[in-house]
């Protein structure tokens, strides 16, 4: 028992160190994967469906319970959409928001398949469970059935965004400080998000990115949302190309 207690304490300290480091640097780390299937670069004037982002932010109570906050979540969702639109403002692709049509059974299946594929990619690419059958490959796809989305909405790509964040209450921050004195580390907040771009001709996930930030970045504020989206949209084939040109 003593052994496991010690380990738990170590883990808590580790989390504390990480989150404190993040506070200081306000770091945003991204981890981009692009398809290993052959694919054409997006043509100019590509039509992109932005599937309504799934955003959920919560408050960390003094004891560490996570209490969802509707106002923060909606605010962050709006900010994220605005930031993504800003990303597309400088190029000739067209971004359109889309919420799921629940009456279209095939569309529902495609969205659910995307969830399953997204979860699979997270598990096997980001969480230490590499699949030997996917060695040197990133060929996950939703298959040619995505033509339904392309036809129904006259679109070339679908962009999916999923974001979660937690922020410490004042009482939690006080608790964390006090416990740090006692040698116990606790989390004071974190944010994670992933984005995925689907080619609506082939169904291929052409680009997939996971972003993790420390508690120093705050998605509830425009500047925080800007950093998160900047990390999230890193190296994507739709806006990155124009960004590069702008830089050079």
């Amino acid at each position: 028992m003593a052994g496991s207690f010690f380990t738990l304490k170590q883990i808590r300290l580790l989390i504390l160190i990480i989150s404190m480091g993040a506070v200081v640097t306000a770091c945003v780390t991204s981890s981009v994967n692009t398809t290993s299937n052959s694919h054409e670069a997006p043509k100019s004037g590509a039509q992109i469906l932005l599937i309504q982002p799934d955003v959920e932010l919560s408050l960390i109570t003094a004891s560490g319970l996570r209490e969802p906050r509707a106002d923060w979540s909606k605010q962050a969702q709006d900010l994220i959409i605005a930031e993504i639109e800003k990303n597309f403002a400088g190029n000739d692709h067209e971004l359109r928001q889309h919420s799921l049509n629940m009456d279209d059974a095939h569309e529902v299946q495609l969205i659910k398949l995307h969830e399953a594929v997204g979860n699979t990619i997270l598990l096997h690419r980001f969480f230490n469970q590499p699949l030997p059958s996917k060695k040197d490959k990133f060929d996950w796809s939703l298959g040619p059935g995505v033509a339904t989305l392309a036809d129904n909405y006259d679109a070339d790509y679908a962009l999916f965004i999923f974001a979660r964040g937690a922020y410490a209450s004042a009482a939690r921050q006080a608790t964390a400080l006090v416990l740090a004195v006692a040698g116990v580390g606790v989390s004071t907040g974190d944010q994670a998000a992933f984005a995925s771009l689907v080619n609506l001709k082939t169904g291929d996930i052409v680009w997939f990115n996971v972003t993790v930030t420390g508690s120093g970045v705050d998605m509830r504020k425009p500047s925080g949302a800007e950093s998160v989206v900047k990390g999230l949209m890193k190296d994507n084939p739709l806006t990155n190309h124009t960004n590069d040109k702008a830089k050079s």
């Binding site: 883990i11 997270l122 598990l123 469970q129 590499p130 699949l131 060695k135 979660r164 994670a192």
Partner: peptide, 17 residues
Amino acid sequence: FAIIALIGLSACASISA
């Protein structure tokens, strides 16, 4: 996210080709 957090902590299962 909750599930993968747990898996991330556990040692990686020995998956072979």
